[in-house]
Design a protein around this nucleic acid. Structure first.
Length: 257
DNA sequence: ATGACTTACAGGGTAAGA
């Protein structure tokens, strides 16, 4: 079973790229972020036509998350994190698929920092950490996947010095990520490749894709009930190399059975 | 310090991304 996360940077602008990737790689479960579209225009029919059921949580203009399942309909457990009734950002959706609980998240960027956007990022992260604790200990297999907007270490970006003041590299952001992992989660890509530089995002500027000047910010976290099934992990870089690509590439894990 | 790109919203320039 292959589970992937993909920040599409606009589901309408990226639909043909998304469908091409789904048909070529046939992931079983997909977490999407940055739909940038209200719920009523989510392209459910086109996605269904290539064999996927979906649940989605969008909004006008930005943010937006969805979970797709090949040959199945995800059963939605929640939309939005607990304690976030006044949060207008669509950044979290959770569903059960093939016996696995799937949390799909789009963590706030937080730039510029310091400032209100960074405060919002850290507050959102704290709510995620509290909710993740119950998921981690549930005894059920859980994957928590998405665009975390955190560069975990200096090995996870092509040039950490250039971005020392960026919200994604701040000690507070990294400390939150480490506290999340300390609950018992496994960062699947880093577990599969303990040393290598692996990137999941290349911005559109200065030919960064062509020069492989990337960042690792899309993560798949497995709880202890799921970790024993981790068989492989990777990044579908070919998707980033297509014309009209998202600035992120699909990032995935393969599970036994 | 800024801008380099891209998307959405809107029908032009601004907000947002990371």
């Amino acid at each position: 079973m292959k589970i992937a996360t993909f920040n599409v940077n606009g589901i309408r602008s990226r639909l043909s790229n998304l469908l091409e990737w789904l048909e070529r790689e046939t992931p079983d479960i997909v977490c999407l972020q940055e739909l940038k579209a209200p719920d009523e225009v989510f392209p459910a029919l086109a996605i269904q036509a290539v064999g996927y059921g979906a649940v989605w949580h969008g909004q006008k203009g930005w943010n937006g998350v969805a979970i797709l399942a090949r040959g199945a309909n995800p059963v939605e457990n929640r939309r939005g994190l607990p304690e976030a009734d006044d949060d207008s950002h669509s950044r979290y959706i959770e569903a059960t698929v093939h016996g696995i609980s799937v949390g799909c998240l789009y963590l706030p960027n937080g730039n510029p920092q310091p400032g209100p956007k960074f405060d919002y990022k850290l507050a959102w992260f704290e709510r995620l950490i509290r909710h993740a604790s119950t998921l981690c200990d549930s005894g059920q297999p859980v994957v928590l996947a998405g665009d975390y907007n955190v560069v975990p270490t200096d090995v996870d970006i092509y040039n950490a010095r250039s971005y020392q003041k960026d919200a994604l590299l701040q000690p507070q952001s990294r400390e939150c990520y480490q506290r999340l992992l300390a609950q018992g989660w496994t960062d699947a890509l880093r577990a599969r490749f303990p040393e290598e530089r692996i990137y999941t995002f290349w911005d559109y500027f200065r030919q960064h894709w062509e020069k492989n000047s990337g960042w690792r910010i899309d993560h798949l976290l497995l709880n202890p009930a799921l970790k024993p099934r981790l068989a492989d992990a990777g990044v579908d870089k070919w998707v980033r190399g297509k014309t009209n690509a998202s600035d992120h590439a699909p990032t995935w894990v393969r599970l036994a059975a």
